[in-house]
Write a protein that binds this DNA or RNA. Structure first.
Length: 223
DNA sequence: GACCAGGCACATC
DNA sequence: GATGTGCATGGT
Protein backbone atom coordinates (compact mmCIF):
# COMPACT_ATOMS: atom_id res chain seq x y z
CA UNK A 1 0.00 0.00 0.00
CA UNK A 2 2.84 2.35 0.88
CA UNK A 3 4.44 1.54 -2.46
CA UNK A 4 1.23 2.42 -4.29
CA UNK A 5 1.13 5.80 -2.55
CA UNK A 6 4.67 6.51 -3.58
CA UNK A 7 3.94 5.45 -7.18
CA UNK A 8 0.92 7.74 -7.37
CA UNK A 9 2.92 10.60 -5.92
CA UNK A 10 5.69 10.01 -8.47
CA UNK A 11 3.21 9.94 -11.34
CA UNK A 12 1.56 13.14 -10.12
CA UNK A 13 4.89 14.91 -9.73
CA UNK A 14 6.15 13.90 -13.17
CA UNK A 15 2.92 14.95 -14.86
CA UNK A 16 2.72 18.26 -13.02
CA UNK A 17 6.36 19.00 -13.79
CA UNK A 18 5.72 18.40 -17.51
CA UNK A 19 2.26 19.86 -18.02
CA UNK A 20 1.84 22.36 -15.16
CA UNK A 21 -1.47 23.40 -13.61
CA UNK A 22 -4.45 22.66 -15.86
CA UNK A 23 -7.05 25.00 -14.28
CA UNK A 24 -9.92 22.56 -14.73
CA UNK A 25 -12.85 22.43 -15.28
CA UNK A 26 -12.82 24.63 -18.41
CA UNK A 27 -16.25 26.11 -17.61
CA UNK A 28 -17.49 29.29 -15.96
CA UNK A 29 -20.50 28.17 -13.94
CA UNK A 30 -21.72 25.12 -12.08
CA UNK A 31 -24.38 24.59 -14.73
CA UNK A 32 -21.96 24.93 -17.62
CA UNK A 33 -19.78 22.26 -16.02
CA UNK A 34 -22.73 19.89 -15.72
CA UNK A 35 -23.72 20.43 -19.36
CA UNK A 36 -20.10 19.98 -20.45
CA UNK A 37 -19.82 16.75 -18.45
CA UNK A 38 -22.74 15.25 -20.36
CA UNK A 39 -21.67 16.60 -23.75
CA UNK A 40 -18.10 15.34 -23.45
CA UNK A 41 -19.10 11.69 -23.06
CA UNK A 42 -16.87 9.78 -25.51
CA UNK A 43 -16.24 13.06 -27.32
CA UNK A 44 -13.30 15.37 -27.96
CA UNK A 45 -13.52 18.54 -25.85
CA UNK A 46 -13.01 20.84 -28.86
CA UNK A 47 -16.30 19.57 -30.26
CA UNK A 48 -18.00 20.17 -26.92
CA UNK A 49 -16.76 23.76 -26.87
CA UNK A 50 -18.52 24.47 -30.15
CA UNK A 51 -21.78 23.19 -28.73
CA UNK A 52 -21.36 25.23 -25.54
CA UNK A 53 -20.72 28.38 -27.57
CA UNK A 54 -23.93 27.69 -29.49
CA UNK A 55 -25.84 27.30 -26.22
CA UNK A 56 -24.34 30.53 -24.85
CA UNK A 57 -25.18 32.50 -27.97
CA UNK A 58 -28.73 31.18 -27.88
CA UNK A 59 -29.00 32.23 -24.22
CA UNK A 60 -29.63 28.62 -23.28
CA UNK A 61 -26.97 27.98 -20.68
CA UNK A 62 -29.44 27.97 -17.81
CA UNK A 63 -31.49 25.10 -16.36
CA UNK A 64 -34.92 26.52 -17.17
CA UNK A 65 -33.92 27.27 -20.77
CA UNK A 66 -32.69 23.75 -21.45
CA UNK A 67 -35.74 22.40 -19.64
CA UNK A 68 -38.16 24.37 -21.79
CA UNK A 69 -36.51 24.40 -25.21
CA UNK A 70 -37.88 22.12 -27.93
CA UNK A 71 -35.77 18.99 -28.33
CA UNK A 72 -35.38 19.59 -32.08
CA UNK A 73 -33.94 23.03 -31.31
CA UNK A 74 -31.60 21.68 -28.65
CA UNK A 75 -30.40 19.03 -31.10
CA UNK A 76 -29.39 21.74 -33.56
CA UNK A 77 -27.44 23.67 -30.92
CA UNK A 78 -25.44 20.72 -29.60
CA UNK A 79 -24.93 19.02 -32.95
CA UNK A 80 -21.15 19.66 -33.09
CA UNK A 81 -20.68 17.60 -29.90
CA UNK A 82 -21.85 14.45 -31.66
CA UNK A 83 -24.48 11.92 -30.47
CA UNK A 84 -26.77 14.96 -30.52
CA UNK A 85 -30.09 13.09 -30.32
CA UNK A 86 -28.83 10.94 -27.47
CA UNK A 87 -27.31 13.86 -25.57
CA UNK A 88 -30.44 15.96 -26.03
CA UNK A 89 -32.36 13.21 -24.23
CA UNK A 90 -29.72 13.05 -21.51
CA UNK A 91 -29.76 16.80 -20.91
CA UNK A 92 -33.56 16.73 -20.82
CA UNK A 93 -33.49 13.78 -18.39
CA UNK A 94 -31.24 15.73 -16.05
CA UNK A 95 -33.47 18.82 -16.20
CA UNK A 96 -36.59 16.75 -15.62
CA UNK A 97 -35.02 15.28 -12.50
CA UNK A 98 -33.75 18.69 -11.36
CA UNK A 99 -37.12 20.39 -11.74
CA UNK A 100 -39.24 17.50 -10.47
CA UNK A 101 -37.21 17.14 -7.28
CA UNK A 102 -35.40 20.41 -6.61
CA UNK A 103 -37.36 23.12 -8.38
CA UNK A 104 -34.56 23.53 -10.94
CA UNK A 105 -32.33 25.02 -8.24
CA UNK A 106 -28.69 23.90 -8.25
CA UNK A 107 -28.12 25.58 -4.87
CA UNK A 108 -30.47 23.03 -3.34
CA UNK A 109 -28.42 20.19 -4.85
CA UNK A 110 -25.34 21.68 -3.23
CA UNK A 111 -26.85 21.02 0.19
CA UNK A 112 -27.07 17.27 -0.40
CA UNK A 113 -24.54 14.94 1.19
CA UNK A 114 -22.02 13.64 -1.36
CA UNK A 115 -22.82 9.93 -1.28
CA UNK A 116 -26.56 10.53 -1.59
CA UNK A 117 -26.09 13.08 -4.37
CA UNK A 118 -23.97 10.58 -6.30
CA UNK A 119 -26.64 7.89 -5.97
CA UNK A 120 -29.31 10.31 -7.15
CA UNK A 121 -27.26 11.46 -10.13
CA UNK A 122 -26.67 7.83 -11.15
CA UNK A 123 -30.42 7.26 -11.28
CA UNK A 124 -30.75 9.82 -14.09
CA UNK A 125 -30.64 7.93 -17.38
CA UNK A 126 -27.56 9.06 -19.25
CA UNK A 127 -25.47 9.87 -16.19
CA UNK A 128 -23.01 7.08 -15.42
CA UNK A 129 -20.19 6.92 -12.89
CA UNK A 130 -17.72 9.16 -14.69
CA UNK A 131 -20.25 11.86 -15.51
CA UNK A 132 -21.64 11.78 -11.96
CA UNK A 133 -18.17 12.03 -10.44
CA UNK A 134 -17.13 14.84 -12.80
CA UNK A 135 -20.20 16.77 -11.67
CA UNK A 136 -19.47 16.06 -8.00
CA UNK A 137 -15.82 17.10 -8.19
CA UNK A 138 -15.83 19.92 -10.71
CA UNK A 139 -19.31 21.43 -10.34
CA UNK A 140 -19.85 20.89 -6.60
CA UNK A 141 -16.30 20.69 -5.26
CA UNK A 142 -16.68 17.31 -3.56
CA UNK A 143 -13.59 15.17 -2.87
CA UNK A 144 -14.43 12.45 -5.39
CA UNK A 145 -11.74 11.05 -7.71
CA UNK A 146 -12.82 10.97 -11.34
CA UNK A 147 -11.49 8.05 -13.34
CA UNK A 148 -11.77 7.57 -17.08
CA UNK A 149 -10.33 5.55 -19.95
CA UNK A 150 -7.02 7.43 -19.69
CA UNK A 151 -6.75 6.78 -15.95
CA UNK A 152 -7.26 3.08 -16.57
CA UNK A 153 -4.66 2.98 -19.34
CA UNK A 154 -2.02 4.75 -17.24
CA UNK A 155 -2.75 2.58 -14.19
CA UNK A 156 -2.60 -0.64 -16.21
CA UNK A 157 0.44 0.36 -18.22
CA UNK A 158 2.39 1.25 -15.10
CA UNK A 159 1.37 -1.86 -13.20
CA UNK A 160 -0.78 -0.26 -10.52
CA UNK A 161 -3.78 -2.47 -11.38
CA UNK A 162 -4.86 -5.49 -13.41
CA UNK A 163 -6.47 -4.80 -16.81
CA UNK A 164 -9.93 -6.18 -15.90
CA UNK A 165 -10.55 -3.82 -12.96
CA UNK A 166 -13.94 -2.05 -12.83
CA UNK A 167 -14.71 1.65 -12.33
CA UNK A 168 -15.28 1.52 -8.58
CA UNK A 169 -12.09 -0.47 -7.93
CA UNK A 170 -10.03 1.94 -10.01
CA UNK A 171 -11.55 4.87 -8.17
CA UNK A 172 -10.79 3.19 -4.84
CA UNK A 173 -7.14 2.81 -5.83
CA UNK A 174 -6.83 6.59 -5.97
CA UNK A 175 -9.16 7.51 -3.11
CA UNK A 176 -7.56 5.03 -0.71
CA UNK A 177 -4.06 6.25 -1.47
CA UNK A 178 -4.51 10.00 -1.66
CA UNK A 179 -5.71 12.57 0.85
CA UNK A 180 -9.29 13.66 0.04
CA UNK A 181 -8.17 17.00 -1.34
CA UNK A 182 -10.48 18.57 -3.93
CA UNK A 183 -7.76 20.71 -5.53
CA UNK A 184 -5.42 17.72 -5.79
CA UNK A 185 -8.11 15.41 -7.20
CA UNK A 186 -8.99 18.10 -9.73
CA UNK A 187 -5.41 18.53 -10.89
CA UNK A 188 -4.54 14.83 -10.91
CA UNK A 189 -7.46 13.87 -13.15
CA UNK A 190 -6.75 16.73 -15.54
CA UNK A 191 -3.09 15.73 -15.74
CA UNK A 192 -4.02 12.11 -16.48
CA UNK A 193 -6.18 13.35 -19.35
CA UNK A 194 -3.20 15.38 -20.56
CA UNK A 195 -0.82 12.43 -20.68
CA UNK A 196 -3.59 10.31 -22.16
CA UNK A 197 -4.18 12.70 -25.04
CA UNK A 198 -0.53 12.90 -25.97
CA UNK A 199 0.83 9.47 -25.08
CA UNK A 200 -1.43 6.89 -23.40
CA UNK A 201 -3.63 6.27 -26.43
CA UNK A 202 -4.92 2.86 -27.48
CA UNK A 203 -1.78 2.71 -29.60
CA UNK A 204 0.69 4.03 -27.03
CA UNK A 205 3.41 6.50 -27.90
CA UNK A 206 5.90 6.28 -25.08
CA UNK A 207 8.82 8.18 -26.59
CA UNK A 208 8.88 11.54 -24.82
CA UNK A 209 6.18 10.56 -22.33
CA UNK A 210 6.85 12.06 -18.89
CA UNK A 211 6.19 8.58 -17.43
CA UNK A 212 8.52 6.83 -19.87
CA UNK A 213 11.15 6.10 -17.21
CA UNK A 214 8.65 4.32 -14.94
CA UNK A 215 8.17 0.56 -15.25
CA UNK A 216 5.61 -0.25 -17.94
CA UNK A 217 4.56 -3.51 -19.54
CA UNK A 218 2.53 -2.57 -22.60
CA UNK A 219 4.78 -2.44 -25.67
CA UNK A 220 4.87 0.86 -27.50
CA UNK A 221 4.41 0.68 -31.25
CA UNK A 222 6.30 3.84 -32.04
CA UNK A 223 9.32 3.29 -29.80
C1' DG B 1 -9.91 6.60 -45.41
C1' DA B 2 -8.90 4.96 -40.77
C1' DC B 3 -8.56 6.08 -36.19
C1' DC B 4 -9.72 8.48 -32.12
C1' DA B 5 -12.35 11.30 -28.66
C1' DG B 6 -12.71 13.36 -20.84
C1' DG B 7 -19.47 7.08 -21.76
C1' DC B 8 -23.70 5.11 -21.33
C1' DA B 9 -27.77 2.18 -21.94
C1' DC B 10 -29.58 -1.68 -23.80
C1' DA B 11 -29.78 -6.34 -26.18
C1' DT B 12 -28.22 -10.80 -26.22
C1' DC B 13 -26.07 -14.94 -24.81
C1' DG C 1 -22.56 -11.53 -15.29
C1' DA C 2 -19.89 -10.84 -19.36
C1' DT C 3 -19.74 -9.24 -23.96
C1' DG C 4 -21.27 -6.65 -28.09
C1' DT C 5 -23.45 -2.70 -30.27
C1' DG C 6 -25.54 1.90 -31.39
C1' DC C 7 -24.95 6.56 -30.85
C1' DA C 8 -22.39 11.14 -34.52
C1' DT C 9 -19.43 15.02 -35.17
C1' DG C 10 -14.89 16.77 -36.22
C1' DG C 11 -9.68 16.70 -35.90
C1' DT C 12 -5.35 14.20 -37.12
Amino acid sequence: MQKTREQLQTIYDLLFERFGPQHWWPGQTCFEIIVGAILTQNTNWTNVEKAIVNLQQAGCLEPDKIHEIESAELEKLIRPAGYFRLKTKRLKNFMQWLFDNYGGDLDVLDQIETRRLREELLRVSGIGPETADSILLYAFGRPVFVVDAYTARVAVRHELIEPDIDYEQLQYLFEANLEPDVARFNEFHALLVCVGKDFCKPKPKCAGCPLEALPHTIPCEYD
